[in-house]
Write a protein that binds this DNA or RNA. Structure first.
Lengths: 346, 346
DNA sequence: CTGTTAGCGCCTTCAA
DNA sequence: TTGAAGGCGCTAACAG
């Protein structure tokens, strides 16, 4: 018994019609072209029995379309945080009957060129250019065809739409969490700030979060008491920064610029016998898995990875369908995860 | 200026040769078929100038091969731990000039069928069937063509090769770490054990790790003092299990069945004022990122995700090339990450 | 050594 | 309402 795929010709023969007719029926244009109901059923039945499936490669060659999009990232696929971004993209793609190619550039322009070529060679219908952490990227010039930037903004003006988390609003939300809990003083930032220039290099998240924080606090007439910057948002550095802060100050609330930093802060706080949230409230950003693993569970403003991924393919499809507004920036809301690290002050 | 892709015909015309000749040159068979050096150079130059790239879709249709493999997982792509698996596969694929389709089944057989179809429709050259955590899976029967199981073993005998971490050896290694540090008693397991039947359902890792642990300890004439099982390896459950253990016992060493469990154990130990590793040594498995974030840094036997991914495509290619031994199981070594959670006993 | 010819499987005018 | 024919871009026999 032959394992060869059944082709349209096989199907046509089995149904006793021409290939054209079979094709028409299979592409759902039987009604439109007024093919007899009888013939239509015959074809459909034969297709079912033979297990006919159109060869996507052939269709691709013929139509120039592949129902495939490429997901190219610096290293997002491997980022433990951002697998959800792919998951979101994957699901949105599946809903549209589209497959996903993935590739990583490792930040190497040479690799990036190669990948983009390999994808174009395979006639991808569109491209998602993703970054592991939110930042500005240099848009490769050989992006032929529809593309969107995911978790990234173009370094130089570009027509490509961007999908990014709404970090400014997240900053506002974090500040509001503290305000709502009655905090008015003794608020310090860890990881960046308190001034806008004290941010890790390249990090748009840092400045935008800070902007939001300062805005809401400012409106409420509350001053940030101080802060410590970390060149990288790692637990060790968060620990060091917090330990250093504690040498001179007794904070009542910490806004950590992300969860890994917060983990370090927890450790430093613990070392000097300060209780979270009894003595010090902590808010953070990202909603990394550890946020709900550490004790007390961390109240944090979540990075909406899954939604970002979904949105990317939605925008990409809009892009592919009509002409979209060039360079539009889509901001995805960052939800607050209320947990146990913030105490109410009277 | 036309943006149309340069075709072989264009190239042939520009070089003043036939399409065949151009094709021969471009596929590197000029030497073999003794095409004049002069013509070869002319074609190569023209190709370079025109930026000719063969249309992979067309090649696919013609040759039936697509230089593409499919990576299908239950939900590994999104698993924060296992992004490295994809990364490994991605790199090994890139080295071979192959692209990766990815898809997730969410454990839904219906989705799985659909995905497999979609991939076959696109003529993938091979399939990687991956699981998020090591376990036995039901091999779908419509896997036409070469395929390998990644981080999974077939539930019923199958011809497909498997690539899995060498958990038994990992268990041995963990036990040796303790033995080498002079531990001879007061050793408890957390997450599973001490008996082989006390394991979370479905988890092959649990039983294999336990087997290795018991083997080495047994050989050294050391008895496991006791243990606590967790139905799922989560920090909370690790905490609860350890706290419960501490009500009755004073362990000198803990073998946690994975890092998340170990995190919970740390918390429980801390609560009763026990110091790691001063009072209690801790070894664990997985090398989750938190292992190096918590204090003291956790000594753990690493899950070789990256290597697993690489190996999967290596085996897949071997599979595609020659006939491989059916059903072979490839075990990838799990390296010990020596850190600070184990103290030497005199 | 190089060119001609014939498809791979499908879709799409154009005729019948 | 259906069929025949051509071609997407490429490779592989087979001639010359």
């Amino acid at each position: 018994m032959s394992r060869r795929r059944v082709t349209l010709a096989d199907l046509a023969q089995a149904a006793g019609v021409s290939r054209t007719t079979a094709s028409l029926v299979m592409t759902g244009r039987a009604r439109e072209l007024r093919i007899s109901h009888d013939v239509e059923q015959r074809v459909l039945r034969a297709a079912d029995e033979l297990g006919y499936r159109p060869n996507a490669v052939s269709v691709g060659l013929r139509t120039g379309t592949s129902r495939t999009i490429g997901f190219v990232s610096d290293t997002v696929a491997t980022s433990r945080l951002a697998g959800d971004m792919i998951k979101g993209a994957l699901e949105a793609a599946r809903e549209r009957g589209v497959m996903l190619f993935i590739g990583e550039t490792e930040g190497d322009p040479e690799l990036e060129r190669g990948l983009l070529h390999a994808m174009h060679d395979r006639q991808v219908d569109g491209l998602i250019l993703a970054a592991m952490y939110t930042r500005t990227i240099k848009v490769p010039k050989d992006v032929g065809g529809p593309a969107v930037l995911l978790n990234a903004l173009p370094k130089t003006p570009s027509d490509l739409p961007s999908i990014v988390p709404d970090e400014v609003e997240a900053g506002r939300a974090a500040a509001r969490v503290l305000l709502d809990a009655g905090h008015r003083d003794g608020i310090y930032t860890i990881g960046a700030g308190p001034a806008l220039r004290n941010v890790p290099p390249q990090s748009v998240a840092a400045v935008e979060r800070l902007v939001g924080i300062r805005e809401v606090l400012g409106e409420a007439g509350v001053k940030i008491a101080g802060g410590r910057m970390c060149v990288d948002w790692l637990p060790e550095l968060g620990f060091a920064a917090t330990a250093d802060l504690l040498k001179k100050h007794r904070p009542k609330a910490l806004i950590c610029l992300n969860d890994r930093v917060a983990l370090g802060a927890y450790q430093a706080l613990g070392d000097v016998g300060l209780d979270v949230p009894g003595d010090v409230s902590v808010v953070s950003f990202d909603d990394h898995p550890i946020a709900s693993w550490i004790r007390p569970k961390l109240t944090t403003v979540a990075l909406p990875y899954y939604e970002l991924g979904r949105k990317a393919v939605e925008v990409l499809f809009a892009q592919m369908g009509e002409e979209a507004k060039p360079g539009e920036v889509h901001r995805v809301a960052m939800p607050v995860m209320h947990r146990d690290s913030v105490a109410t002050r009277s």
